[in-house]
Simulated assay, not measured.
Amino acid sequence: MSTTTAEPDTEDILTEAEFRNRLRELPPSAKLVAKVLESDAPLSQGQLAEESLLPDRTVRYALNRLEESDLVGSRYSFKDARKQVYFLNT
């Protein structure tokens, strides 16, 4: 899992076409999590589970797949440093 201290750098940001091509290959749960992050980021894993109505385990799997594809980045939450928050690399 890549952990950064701020929002993504310009070199980490994908073009819309690159993002869509990578996302196309992922399972539906990853697509749903990406869609939730598209409208309301950054979010914690728990917040993603609540917003997507997916089980925690499925959200974790989706986040892992999104991170492996470099579609999602994470950082520690400013509100609660014990938690990671996730955002899209677009």
Rank of each mutant, 00 (worst) to 15 (best):
R57Y: 09
A49L: 03
G73H: 08
A17G: 05
Q47R: 04
R75K: 15
S39Y: 08
P42I: 00
L53C: 12
K35G: 07
D56I: 05
R82I: 03
S52W: 00
D70E: 14
R22Q: 14
Y61M: 10
L14W: 01
E11K: 10
F87E: 01
Y86C: 03
A81R: 15
S69R: 14
L63W: 01
F87D: 01
D80A: 09
E68C: 07
Q45F: 04
R75W: 05
T4S: 02
P8E: 14
L63R: 01
F87P: 02
R65A: 15
D56K: 10
F78L: 14
S39M: 08
K79W: 08
F19Y: 14
Y61W: 06
A41I: 04
Q47D: 08
L48Q: 01
S77F: 01
P8K: 12
R20Q: 14
R24W: 07
K35Q: 10
T10Q: 15
Y61T: 08
A30R: 04
N89E: 10
S52T: 11
P8D: 13
A6I: 01
T4I: 04
F87M: 14
L63Q: 00
L32K: 12
E16Q: 11
R24H: 13
S69L: 09
D80L: 06
A6Q: 03
S44D: 14
S29K: 11
E51I: 04
A34V: 01
R20A: 14
S44R: 10
N64E: 11
E50C: 05
F19Q: 11
E11I: 09
L14I: 02
